[in-house]
């Protein structure tokens, strides 16, 4: 009889132990997740993606020539400007980069036909990817510019300083993308 009572107590003890174990695993996982979020760069990448998208949109708004240098400061992120979005990642092989939309940005090299000029209000748009950082000790900078030519066409471009870049659809395949 006593032996059986001990058996019940044993089973209950195992359940209790399992509950503590579950709590401990979930608790540690929760703390690890919170620490990762605080230590990680997700917020910074989100911020830069949005900030860069806004800077590009502001550039589109410019009625005349304009150039703007965007300094990444201490962050060594790789940026891609394509289609209608800006992508920010830490490593070239990162499969889920942070992205943000850029309104009115097809980023194509085709002539942009507008109501203002049916023959083609030409805006050549950037379509580039940063492949790698050249010198890790130096800051990475982007030069965003809009330049008008005499015939009414304009170019919105993005050039990187201290980073190797490629043009999407042109030579990015040479860099494995």
């Amino acid at each position: 009889m006593r032996k059986k009572r001990g058996q019940y107590a044993n089973i209950e003890l195992w359940f209790l132990l399992a509950a503590f174990l579950l709590g401990a695993v979930a608790g540690i996982d929760l703390l690890k997740d919170a620490k990762d979020r605080l230590d990680g760069t997700l917020f910074e990448k989100n911020f830069i993606a949005r900030d860069l998208a806004m800077a590009l949109e502001a550039l589109y708004a410019s009625p005349g020539d304009m150039a703007y240098t965007y300094d990444f400061g201490p962050y060594k992120f790789l940026v891609e400007v394509k289609d209608n979005e800006v992508l920010v990642k830490e490593k070239a092989a990162e499969t889920s980069p942070v992205s943000y939309r850029v309104i009115g940005n097809s980023f194509s090299d085709q002539n942009y036909v507008s109501f203002d000029n049916p023959e083609g209000y030409k805006i050549r748009r950037p379509n580039m990817r940063m492949v790698s950082i050249i010198d890790e000790a130096k800051p990475v900078k982007l030069r965003l510019f809009k330049e008008f030519s005499d015939n009414g066409t304009s170019i919105v471009g993005v050039e990187a300083e201290n980073a190797q870049t490629c043009l999407i659809g042109v030579n990015c395949a040479d860099f494995g993308g």
Partner: peptide
Amino acid sequence: HVLMQRLQFSPEG
């Protein structure tokens, strides 16, 4: 706000 500025200041606007 940037969109509105764009419509008001850019030749595309």
